[in-house]
Write a protein that binds this DNA or RNA. Structure first.
Length: 851
RNA sequence: GCCGGUGUGGCGGAAUGGUAGACGCAGGGGAUUCAAAAUCCCCCGAUGGUGACAUCGUGCCGGUUCGAGUCCGGCCACCGGUACCA
């Protein structure tokens, strides 16, 4: 018997697949197509065990679909632009391009030994000029189609380094390098007009039947459609050109509870007032400090500044409300002005308390509720409440009805209009950075902003740049900016902003259908391969990447680069969990943490110990992080146990949508199991026992295994499939069946394992004398009649607690089951001669005797 | 802050509203061996009991139901996203 030697068999079968071009995708009409895609990686240089899990899931699907008669497309590429390459350039002096391509080479070298069934001939990186040149072409088409805009955007500004900062580079409101307090600054930027598609992107979510409900919900909330009232408060005393303040509210029904008007520090009125009011100017400047993230803005201390101005309440001209500039009012949502209703909004309530403003309830939980509030009363809009200040509806009405009535009433009385607004903002794509796709436009003194001619694409990044000074090296490049205007031919300057890396990842899936063609896509290939039938990736992309991709597919359809059938590019989505690992920590005498590598720690007696006997603290299931020394290197695992062990383990222990914790003992156990399967297969090849009555239970479990493993693969229950594979392996090992039956069983086991552990499966298949590849063998089919057992065991509950069980023929009628149940010893004892109050028999499930 | 998710033995987890803990890890016992490795077999939620068994037990509090890990309401903790990380 030859021992299980993964390093030999894995290399052997990978070579066989390469030679046979098993995974090369070619258009053909004789089989249904299936496109499976995992979210492509950023080329960090090292593959992570999380990548192994992500790609193994996709590979299981790809290989299973191949076995079930599909023409499979399973490609791989790299999301290669972005900040880490520039950071590396700043830290080590290596050029972003060299850094990135070296990392890609390294990662491919680490991925190939995993034995993934990928069509490597389609590989590309988003930093290939061949790719981003087509992206520039798409940009020009979208500009022509009116889908792109130029307008102001707020960015994080580092006043010391004089540079724009990414949110990630703002730490506690300070620049990561300079440590200076970050300010918000307006810049003119390019925008994709995704908000034009807000309603459509929202409505179409309903059609995505095979997307997780949570992702659809998150996208719906992000788009944030709301109906409200937009109206003007007239100023008691006008100032400059301002006679009124336009506000938008989703709760017009609470208008009688208004106690102040809040305007954004960036509101035109606030900007006008600050001209002649140094205190307000200082207040506004203070509000503009800090980062641009929603979190920073929301968590900032609520501050207000009384402008001294007042407005009339729309229903009572004698009622005057003060205007405050308030830092929690956002200029880019609604109109940049609100009315505050402290009784029914906690933020307004806190504001009113702080500045001594009245708190006027418009409704209460019920008629006899206390009208003095200690916190804002904010029921859900469907709750019935008792109104004390309604203006067009009955005293007991829910929020939704009251809002609709309020809008109708206001419209009828000439106070504003009901309007629908979206939270979704346009997508700002300009980045003041080098390592991205240049935005293909030219700034001409006579013609203004002009798109580059398509024949001049790609606009390639210059190689000779330096990163010693903060800021965008394209800005200070001596010659790259200089060009000729595509319209008038005179000297002009190139745009130096590059595109957001989300643009790169918003259409790569379409490019995979024809990765080397001279247009963004090839119509016939796109029509054949789109959509992605199964997309797999992390839930962290639930909103931005997936929403942008949905928008881009629509844009590419509008510009004739995708068929209409591809406007929702991902038919099914699966969001997988992370691979985590324990952190082993000790502390220095002054309390600073020291993190230890797993190989330094000996696990015994329920604890972890260093070589010198020091006990370490174990923090379980932590996200892998280089700084915590808890990263598992897949290359080391493959060298030690082989790719099949790594593939099996990452799928075995947790459901795919949840995190899985990598443990050394778990990996070792997997290796032992695969060795066992190999050993059992070797034994069976030599087994010549005659057929006997033990064949039947073995074959019955085999059909159950086919059924359960298939169901697991079809429903992303890979851990359930693996649990059954363990069980079936045990059945085979213990079975006394004849040689022929055992050979059939082990052959089926190999097939069922083949998507997960393809190398071992090929080897067993070969051992059994098969001449073709298992990768091309048709998937086995479970025969239902072969799975049926004759009897069934039913638990008996007494008052809902399990007390006994009976075994009855499978087909026994409900009445007969009741009779048998009443003869059960435990039931007789519990009844004490009486009759049960109720007897519940759920056929095939359970019996409950209520006494 | 806001949006979404998760919470079950020593650990990872299983369970169409129907026997809580499948399968795996760790641990304990045994077989084999001169011994070890490897392999094979058995046990393994807590408490009480020699035992059959009894009571408790799925983050916390409450509810619906013959029956709740699962459904509903209210909390707590952790994780993801929060528009310039990818």
């Amino acid at each position: 018997m030859t021992p299980y030697a993964p390093s030999e068999i894995e290399a052997k079968w990978q070579a066989a697949w390469d030679k046979a071009e098993t995974f090369k995708a070619t258009r053909s009409d004789d089989k249904p197509k299936y496109y499976v895609l995992e979210m492509f990686p950023y080329p960090s240089g090292r593959i992570h065990i999380g990548h192994v899990r992500n790609y193994t899931m996709g590979d299981v699907i790809a290989r299973y679909k191949l076995a079930t008669g599909h023409n499979v497309l399973h490609p791989m590429g790299f999301d290669a632009f972005g900040m880490p390459a520039e950071n590396a350039a700043m830290q080590t002096g290596i050029h972003p391009k060299d850094y990135t391509y070296q990392n890609i080479d390294d990662m491919v070298a680490q991925m190939k030994p995993l034995g993934l069934g990928i069509d490597w001939s389609r590989m590309f990186a988003t930093c290939d000029p061949e790719y981003y040149g087509q992206q520039q072409s798409l940009f020009i088409d979208m500009l022509d189609a009116g889908m792109i805009d130029r307008k102001n955007a707020t960015v994080n500004w580092d006043p010391v380094d004089m540079t724009v900062l990414a949110n990630e580079q703002v730490i506690d409101g300070k620049g990561w390098r300079s440590g200076a307090e970050v300010e918000r600054k307006d810049l003119t930027q390019w925008f994709f007009k995704i908000s034009d598609y807000a309603d459509e992107l929202l409505e179409a979510l309903d059609s995505l039947d095979n997307w997780p409900a949570k992702v659809k919900l998150m996208q719906a909330n992000w788009i944030g459609k709301s109906r409200g009232l937009q109206f003007a408060f007239s100023l008691v005393k006008g100032i400059g050109a301002h006679n009124s303040v336009e506000v938008y509210t989703t709760r017009p029904d609470t208008l009688m509870g208004a106690s102040f008007v809040g305007i954004s520090p960036d509101h035109p009125l606030a900007k006008e007032l600050e001209q002649n009011n140094a205190d307000l100017a200082a207040f506004n400047a203070k509000c503009r400090k800090g980062g641009t993230t929603a979190e920073a803005l929301e968590k900032a201390e609520k501050m207000g500044f009384d402008t001294g101005l007042c407005v009339h309440h729309p229903f009572d001209t004698l009622w005057e409300l003060p205007i405050y500039v308030a830092n929690f009012v956002m200029m880019d949502y609604g109109t940049g002005a609100i009315f505050g209703c402290p009784a029914h909004d906690q933020r307004d309530f806190d504001f009113a308390k702080k500045y001594g403003l009245p708190i006027i309830p418009t409704f209460l939980p019920s008629e006899d509720s206390e009208a003095e509030l200690t916190e804002a009363f904010v029921p859900t809009k469907t709750d019935m409440v008792h109104w004390v200040a309604p203006f067009a509806w009955s005293p007991n009405t829910n929020g939704t009805d009251a809002i609709n009535k309020a809008i109708d009433f206001c419209e009828a009385n000439g106070v504003g209009m009901g309007v629908t607004k979206f939270r979704l903002r346009d997508w700002g794509l300009s980045r003041q950075r080098y390592w991205g796709a240049p935005i293909p436009v030219v700034h001409c003194n006579s013609c203004g902003v002009v798109p580059e001619k398509k024949e001049n694409l790609p606009i390639e990044l210059p190689y000779d740049v330096s990163f010693e000074i903060p800021g965008n090296p394209l800005d200070r490049h001596p010659t790259w900016r200089n060009t000729l205007c595509p319209a008038c031919g005179k000297a002009a300057l190139r745009e130096t902003d590059t595109m957001d890396t989300f643009v790169d990842s918003s259409w790569y899936f379409a490019r995979f259908t024809a990765p080397h063609t001279k247009t963004p896509t090839e119509a016939a290939d796109a029509a054949y391969w789109m959509n992605v039938d199964q997309y797999i990736g992390g839930v962290e992309h639930a909103i931005l990447h997936l929403l942008y991709s949905r928008f881009f597919a629509r844009a590419m359809h509008k510009t004739s680069h995708l068929p209409e059938s591809a406007i929702e590019p991902f038919n099914a989505l699966f969001t997988q969990g992370m691979v985590t690992h324990a952190i082993f920590k000790t502390e220095t005498t002054d309390g600073r943490p020291i993190y230890h590598y797993p190989e330094e720690v000996d696990l015994r007696d329920g604890g972890g110990f260093l070589k010198d006997g020091t006990q370490v603290a174990i923090i379980p299931s932590a996200k892998m992080s280089k700084s915590k020394n808890n990263v598992v290197d897949p290359v080391a695992i493959i060298n030690q146990y082989g790719a099949d062990t790594a593939r099996w383990f990452v799928l075995s222990d947790s459901p795919p949508e949840r995190d899985v914790e990598w443990t050394a003992s778990g990996a070792e156990a997997t290796f032992k199991h695969l060795s066992r399967v190999h050993r059992i297969a070797c034994d069976i090849v030599e087994n010549t026992d005659a057929a006997n009555q033990q064949d039947e239970p073995l074959l019955r479990d085999m059909h159950k295994a086919i059924f359960e493993v298939t169901q697991g693969v079809e429903s992303f229950g890979f851990n359930a499939s693996i649990a059954k594979l363990y069980g079936f392996t045990n059945t085979i090992a213990k079975s006394k069946a004849g040689g022929d039956a055992k050979r059939i069983a082990i052959k089926i086991l190999a097939q069922l394992m083949s998507p997960i552990t393809p190398h071992l499966a090929e080897d067993i298949w070969n051992m059994l004398g098969e001449k073709k590849l298992i990768a091309n063998a048709p998937w086995p089919i479970a025969i239902e009649t072969m799975m049926i057992e004759d009897t069934i065991t039913l638990p008996i509950q007494i008052n809902g607690k399990r007390r006994s069980e009976i075994t009855v023929p499978k087909e026994m009628s409900k009445e007969d089951v009741e009779k048998v149940a009443l003869t059960d010893e435990a039931v007789i004892k519990a009844l004490e001669g009486g009759q049960p109050k109720k007897l519940i028999v759920v056929p095939g499930r359970i019996i409950n005797v209520v006494i």
